[in-house]
Design a protein around this nucleic acid. Structure first.
Lengths: 287, 287
DNA sequence: CGCCTAGTTGACCAGGTTCAACAACGGTGG
DNA sequence: CCACCGTTGTTGAACCTGGTCAACTAGGCG
């Protein structure tokens, strides 16, 4: 297993000088300091490969083709929108470290977060085939993202046999996650709903090798405020707060500054009614 | 515009003798009475072509390639599952007439409907790339469905240039619909939530030419019970009933046996906060 | 005619929202 | 180093949307 936390931290330090860009699609981005890349313990595209291989085995040629993708890492400011509703993106974003979240704004002004995105995710891969975005994607603090022009990504897909199917599958797994979220928000009471979100994120992080933990407990970074967790679960932030207290009182989790520790993983899964099948993870990536 | 209602009715009559199959994936299906097909006013695959062209223009070669697809129409019994959780489908279903719905069963026993499917939809296209289904798909009364073996469908995709992208796009539009449903169920109060479902279905039916109506009013078949509408909206059937009464009282809709009439389409859209962008329909198909 | 399903109604209750105030924390500037 | 400030988290009380339970009605069909 790769020392993921360390290498990502190194990675971020090497990028600390990168300027964020205001509106990614509308103005010219400042050039990237390529020289700094040599500091990295691994090239940026390894994150993408690790994510894809968490769900889909790749052939050596496919891996090589992805490695040939030129990536241009940039630090994104906190809560900076990567994509906005109505945008016509000309790039696909790849999250190299940190998180992003996807949300819709309703006519009432309320927001609904419809998915979280972790390192290796390509949250707007769909823009390859759906030109106008119907939602927003925002980065959380510390996120580092690369933008790949559509033309380059299309060239990648045609370069290696079967890669189109690989990325198609990736978007289909996203669909499965959305379906699970519809059920989560539509049917589960608050404690199960929030527990389910924890279970999903933990499982996905673990499949990327980003979790520390023992037999039953797991600790991971949690950059999500209670406000955002409310927008993801369809609950008010006040009720999220009380529900978290209940989960803590039942000794299922503890929360630290920006981290969560799952104290009893089997019991949390049980309380959430969580079954990881919908994530289509390669069995060896699930614990 | 094709006289869709009439032709589909004719179509259904011609299939009335077809036996339903119990478990589509596990036992041999009875052979189809091919001779009856000559009665149809249009071949079955025209429904599929019309659906795709509601979102994505096709080249003549693509249309020809789809027309060459051998379709095997079957009547499905009411509430018959087409796909079950855990199945490994070897076929893709195409809905030729009637509706289907996709649902998940939670550990509590509650059900959440995550999408409705209309004529031309391929509700388990994803099974091409995600072998094991994480949900169920059921047909509503009167549904007629064709099953295409995966091998044949893959052959179709390679036969015509760009068809893979067309169907990938189709699954991405499904994703957009799921996202909208997450927001619908997560944030909208009951009246808006139900109105939004009506708006989506009406818009999709209209893009298929399946709606009768005047300037502001629209009438269409509505095979969904209040119980099912509750499972789709995350509300109890009792509350659905009361919410429908409210929508009727405000003269936005009327309900007849198995039909709904939208009395004031602009006002219903407004009440629902509905914006059809997420459906990615070709502009000429929206009214 | 009788049964079954879908729709309707009333009464009661609970989960979750809202509003408002306060506490804890990290970051900033003096 | 401390005072200040904005953000995030926490608490209490009142309120309300929507759930539950149970009974009843209205059609559709054999």
């Amino acid at each position: 297993m790769l020392p993921a936390a360390f290498s990502l931290a190194t990675f971020e330090r090497s990028l600390a000088g990168c300027a964020g860009a205001g509106d990614w699609e509308r103005r010219e981005l400042p050039p990237v300091k390529r020289g700094k890349m040599s500091v990295l313990s691994e090239p940026a595209c390894e994150v993408l490969i690790r994510k894809i291989e968490s769900t889909t085995p790749l052939t050596p040629e496919q891996v090589d083709a992805i490695r040939a993708l030129p990536l241009d890492p940039r630090r994104v400011d906190s809560d900076q929108d990567i994509v906005r509703e109505g945008d016509k993106p000309a790039h696909c974003a790849i999250i190299l470290s940190g998180w992003a979240y996807r949300y819709k704004i309703l006519s009432s002004g309320k927001r609904q977060i419809v998915s979280f995105h972790l390192p290796g995710d390509m949250p707007d891969l769909q823009s390859l085939h759906i030109p106008v975005s119907d939602h927003n994607i925002a980065a959380l603090p510390q996120a580092v993202v690369a933008f790949v022009p559509h033309a380059e990504f299309r060239a990648l897909l045609s370069r290696a046999h079967g890669l189109t199917d690989v990325f198609w599958r990736d978007t289909l797994i996203d669909s499965a996650i959305y379906r699970e979220w519809v059920a989560n928000v539509g049917q589960r009471p608050a404690p199960e709903r929030i527990a389910h979100i924890f279970c999903e994120i933990l499982t996905r992080l673990e499949s990327l090798g980003l979790i520390d933990g023992g037999k039953n407990d797991r600790t991971f970074d949690w950059p999500i405020t209670q406000q955002l967790l409310g927008e993801a679960s369809g609950l008010s932030s006040v009720h999220v707060n009380r529900t978290l207290q209940a989960l803590r009182a039942e000794r299922m989790i503890t929360t630290g500054r920006g981290t969560i520790t799952v104290l009893d993983w089997p019991r949390l899964q049980d309380a959430a009614g969580f079954d990881s099948n919908y994530l289509s993870l390669v069995p060896s990536k699930i614990r």
